[in-house]
Every structure is written in C-alpha cells, then in structure tokens.
Amino acid sequence: MAEHIIELVDLTKKYGDFTAVDRLNLNIRKGEVFGLLGPNGAGKSTTILMMLGLTDPSSGMVRVCGIDSTTKPLEVKRKVGYLPEDVGFYDDRTGLENLLYTASLNGFSRNEAVVKATALLERIGLSDAINKKAGKYSRGMRQRLGLADVLIKNPEIIILDEPTLGIDPKGVREFLDLIVELSKEKGLTVLFSSHHLHQVQQVCDRVGLFISGKLIAEGDIQTLSQKLFSSSPYIIEVGFSDDKQSVNSIETLLKRVEGIVSIQPKNGHFEVSCVRDATSDIARTAVNAGLDLKHLYRKEYGLDEIYSRYFEGGVDHE
C-alpha cells in the first residue's frame, strides 16, 4: 500500500462527445516527484481536478492515499495541497492574512496559524513581504506564496499545476529547487504538471507523457526514451550544401540505406529516423552519390526529442 499513494484506474472524463481523459491508468509512489508532461489541452488539469474530487470522472476510479476522491473529496483535500494554474490571492489582504485564511479553512486556530504561516513565509523567502498586500506581489512572489499556501495544511501530497508559468528563468530555477528541497524535507509526494520539458527533466523522478487524454508512456527519462523510440531509436540530422538536388531525389537516395524508417525535411536539412545507428552508412551513400555533405549529426535523446516527436509532428493528436 505504501508504495502507491495515487492510483488511477481506467479513469475517463467526457465533455459531451469530447473525451478529455481517456482510460487513464497511473500509479504514483510515495515520496517521488512525478511530472505530468503534455501540451495544453492534453487533459493534465482535468486529471488533477478529478484527483481532488473537484470534477467527477465519467468512469473509472481515483484513489489518493487510499481514499476514493469521488466519494470522499473532503478527506482527500485534507491530505492534498493543490496549487492551481495561475493561482490568485485576495489582493487587498496581506500575504500573511491570505495564508491565515487558508489555515482557518483547514481547521487551525489563529495562534497556531500565525506561527506556522510566519515560519513558512520565512522558509520560502517572503519574510520581507509578510505584511505587504498580495496585490503588490510580483508574479514569482505570488507563486512562492502559493507554495506556502499549499504547505500550510501539512499535506502528504502536493499537486502543482503549471507552477512555473510566467516566471523568469532564474525564478523558475529557484522555485524548482525550493520544491525539491521542501519535498525532501517533509517527505512529500509531488505531482508536477507542465508542458515545459526541461523543468520536468530537472526535478522529476518519473514522468508521465500525456497526449489528448491518453498516457503515452511513463517512467524515468531513460525508460521513457527507450519506450518511445523502440521503433526508431535513432535520429540523424543530415544537411547538404547544394540545393540542386530536389528533396525527392535525396529522399529516394537515402531510403536505400538499410534501417531507415522515415525522412523528414526540416529547415534546410533532413531528419532521418532509423532503427540502428546508420550515421556512417548515410555519409557513405551521400558521398558516393556525389552530394556535398555539410552537416551530419546524431541526436541525443532527451525530452526535447520526445517532445518534438510526439507533440509537434508525426503522431496524430488532433
């Protein structure tokens, strides 16, 4: 039981004819930092809402800390801190007052809450702005206040929906470091949704890849790329200096090389996906055919590739 703190079984959410989340199965272990990666509208937020019981699933089951979110949302919400996308605060109240309000909704007495909130604000580096109106906070400060707001109820799990949206790169790094530190400190399970792969790569132990309501793959970065690229694990970029040759003739030429799956022209060069490392074969074929080879590069697999292959081209995701 201890290992799976969030379980989703065949979770489906339909809005009329549109299926936002399609038979999703996912398990998240206690204490890990899990990244939900996917483009906008992939169903990440809907999944999160269903985990919190803020939306009822059309079918399937959600269990958080062993509690069914659909039937007992209150108990789940007691254990889960949720930082919504683009979180808002009461602008005419100070940061401290905003936290105190959340604390009172969670059943803390005022004195307890003041102690906790002050400590938290200090921890996240907002102690200077403690009595400043939340409306005067900068974007990065608001996001950090949001993190404090999530942590004030002593959650077991924190769910962050696109938490780094609209923060500058330095702020993002600090914010992510803060999340990792805090999760280690308090032994939290973190669910982190983003369409920013680098950030996910930076902090997450495991990643789930979402596209149009389906979980394409899950696992750490290595297993993810292995899974995703099992059909064509290698991508080679080839560029030629002369443009006399038509795109078609180059494609037919390269097609002859053994193990090549697909060739896609891309800003002046070609992206060749193949099942084996065909770099040298491609070079030989090109040179033999009398083409001036200008650029030949075997790509490393990172989330970048996963991203570009799955989100931008190739796979149909409506």
Binding site: R78, P84, V87, F89, Y90, K153
Partner: peptide
C-alpha cells in the same frame, strides 16, 4: 476571475 475560487475549493470544505 481573481483565481481564488479553485484555491479555496481545494481546501477541505464542502
């Protein structure tokens, strides 16, 4: 519009 609704409703209240 202030974005406080989802934050408040994610607290353990009906």
């Amino acid at each position: 519009n202030r974005g406080t609704l989802s934050r408040v409703l994610s607290q353990p209240i009906h």
